[in-house]
């Protein structure tokens, strides 16, 4: 993870935009559990914010708003909004309640989530995070990872990633509230890797989770953590199954 004790400097560079991709993802993960870092980031967003106020305006294509409306009108988006609104209320209730009451609220909330939300399909495209991308790698992801919450499986398929002799690709997931990357398995060839969802399974912690691939010796990392920088990175996003079906 980010070995940087200068939290304010790290937050400043994160907001400025100078971190390389793996550092940026590491900060994204760390800020979820590191209150000091999260506060420092907010401070820098406030300090540097005025720089963006006067960015030259550019007119977006006229069809974009219609496309956005379609996306927010999709049932799944509506569910997410519904959940977020209620999650905020639950947070407020939990803050004022005892730990037991908070746990109860979470249980009720989770029950409600399961009742109203069909488990979504989550997909991440992983692109090269460090080094120079080939033309093919710019056009296409190195790996595509999908999470089927019905089957509770995570599948990673190499797309442009090429096997390297003596090295394996190892897939990791970084979830909100989980400080360290969790290994999902090793890809040793062109075949897809299918892994069980991390336990306990909780879709809200998978949404926007970051997936990463490191290069490891044969058999994968023996330390339980990546032995080098992440080579490929991507974020899990919910996919509208209906739209996906229509596009095929």
């Amino acid at each position: 993870m980010t070995e940087d004790d200068d939290i304010d400097g790290l937050a400043a560079e994160y907001v400025l935009g100078s971190l390389d991709p793996s550092e940026r993802v590491a900060v994204d993960v760390r800020r979820r559990s590191d209150r000091a870092l999260a506060d420092a980031i907010r401070g820098w967003e406030r300090r540097l914010g005025p720089l963006s106020w006067r960015t030259p305006e550019v007119e977006p294509p006229p069809h974009l708003f219609e496309a956005i409306l379609k996306k927010i009108a999709a049932p799944r988006s509506a569910e997410v909004v519904f959940l977020r609104r209620h999650a905020k209320r639950w947070r407020g209730i939990a803050a004022a309640a005892t730990a037991i009451a908070a746990c109860l609220g979470l249980t009720v909330g989770w029950f409600l989530y399961e009742r109203i939300a069909e488990p979504p399909l989550l997909v991440a495209e992983l692109y090269r995070a460090a080094g120079t991308s080939t033309a093919d790698e710019i056009m296409h992801p190195a790996f595509v990872v999908s999470v089927d919450l019905n089957a509770c499986t995570i599948t990673a398929r190499p797309v442009t990633a090429q096997p390297r002799p003596g090295r394996n690709y190892q897939l990791w997931i970084m979830r909100q509230g989980v400080p360290a990357p969790e290994s999902l398995g090793v890809l040793s060839g062109p075949e897809p890797l299918t892994a069980a969802c991390p336990v306990p399974i909780a879709p809200p912690t998978l949404l926007n989770a970051t997936l990463a691939v490191s290069q490891e010796p044969d058999g994968g990392s023996t330390t339980g953590t990546p032995t080098g920088p992440f080579a490929f990175l991507g974020k899990l996003m919910a996919v509208d199954r209906t739209a996906e079906g229509k596009s095929r």
Binding site: R42, R46, G49, W53, I68, S77, V80, V81, K88
Partner: peptide
């Protein structure tokens, strides 16, 4: 903008200007 739609409930005018929040 999909994020804005989903996250507007989190916006707090006491902690940041609206345009800074959107630009972030």
């Amino acid at each position: 903008y999909v994020r804005v739609w989903q996250s507007a409930v989190d916006y707090d005018a006491a902690t940041s200007s609206p345009i800074t929040w959107l630009a972030t």
